[in-house]
Design a protein around this nucleic acid. Structure first.
Lengths: 214, 214
DNA sequence: CCTAACCGGAAGATTTTCCTCCGCATAAAC
DNA sequence: GTTTATGCGGAGGAAAATCTTCCGGTTAGG
């Protein structure tokens, strides 16, 4: 994305974004930038040179995350044999991306920019398109229960559970996701509360909404 | 709990704990104590008089939360007609308590104290006992799939999804929980990854584990 | 009506975090 | 191999956030 950087500068830039991503997940977006620099193995000077302020860094992390999500959605659709399996793969991947944690911290930065920047807005569209396609098709195939709407899937993408920091969270998470997928299957239904969250809900749940202050 | 306080002092104490609980959930345990005081509608002086340091406040919030969980577990078992429905009620309530968010913030304070203080340790035991009982019975009844272990339930208790701050999260949450419960039913099984998390895992996932530093 | 208990919040002390600046290092071009 | 533009690290002063005390005024409860 950034170009014209010297090789080492480029490498450091990426290290910084990766470190920031980790730390934002672990400790929130208020981590001292010095700590980000330390984790990335660079000096603060380097960080500030590349990202003039905290926002620039937040934006970079957000974009990276969205980029991965687009890739996940489109790859799943392309490589899986049917819509149901594509959806499963997509949901497993989304949960692994920790969308439930990152966006919560990146609010309102990411969403704000999504509205503004054409590039990001387009990525968002691609994800939405892919999700709608998977759902429609999976339901037509009789694999996905029909009282599930796109908004439901959007919410499930952000699924998260607490696991103690010292324990590996993945095994537990993986089981939860499969339980959830099992609950989505068409052949076994029990009533869900309320009405299916529909495509409009999906948009609402994905859209900007500046918290009143702060 | 605290006794010998004048009526207004008692009331303020409770307001403070409630405000702290809210703010810890919303913003993390690092919220300025002044903000807690403001939300509680009292002066900082009052807060510091009652809770000499941040830890005291954290402890109070943690205890309160655990107390509610004990009550939830035992009430569910007592009032529901069978183990399956008790388990459903318990899980719905646990998720509503936002255990996935609070403990994440209270670590390591709550767990630490759980090991130490006899009172808390006993509450923890009561929850564990209730959960084990519900699971065993629900599986014996053929209602709960048998490849689910107590540790799985412990993880599910902390289920959480991200919903934008400006939107009501409850409807979405409620649907997710029902999907999850549906995935737990015995009559429709698909293989879960790994082995069931057993009673030992439950303990491990519930136990102390001080993060290395800080 | 009296008093011990309690309240609020101003303000100084302390800690945390920011972010610039500059001498040294190194990638890349020739 | 040499050159030079680009990049690096981190010390340290400025700024901001947060803590905590203290006391004049208020109120519950007998």
């Amino acid at each position: 994305m950034e170009k014209g950087l010297r090789a080492d500068a480029r490498r450091n830039r990426d290290l910084i974004v990766a470190a920031a991503q980790e730390l934002f997940l672990e400790q929130g977006v208020d981590v001292p930038l010095e700590e980000v620099a330390r984790r990335a193995g660079v000096g603060v000077g380097t960080l500030y040179r590349r990202f003039p302020d905290r926002d620039a860094l937040l934006r970079a992390v957000g974009e990276e995350s969205l980029r991965r999500l687009v890739d996940l959605a489109e790859t799943a659709w392309r490589e899986e044999p049917d819509a149901w399996h594509a959806l499963c793969r997509f949901l497993r991947g989304s949960v692994a991306l920790r969308l439930g944690v990152l966006p919560a911290k990146l609010e309102p930065h990411l969403h704000q920019r999504m509205r503004v920047g054409a590039d990001l807005h387009e990525m968002r569209q691609r994800v939405i398109t892919a999700v709608l396609r998977m759902i429609e098709r999976a339901q037509a195939d009789g694999a996905l229960r029909t009282d599930i709407g796109p908004g439901d899937i959007a919410v499930l993408m952000t699924l998260n559970v607490y696991t103690p920091p010292a324990l590996p969270g993945e095994p537990a998470m993986a089981r939860v996701v499969e339980i959830m997928l099992n609950g989505l299957r068409a052949d076994r239904e029990s009533p869900l509360p309320g009405a299916p969250l529909d495509a409009d809900d999906l948009r609402r749940y994905t859209a900007v909404q500046h918290p009143p202050a702060q």
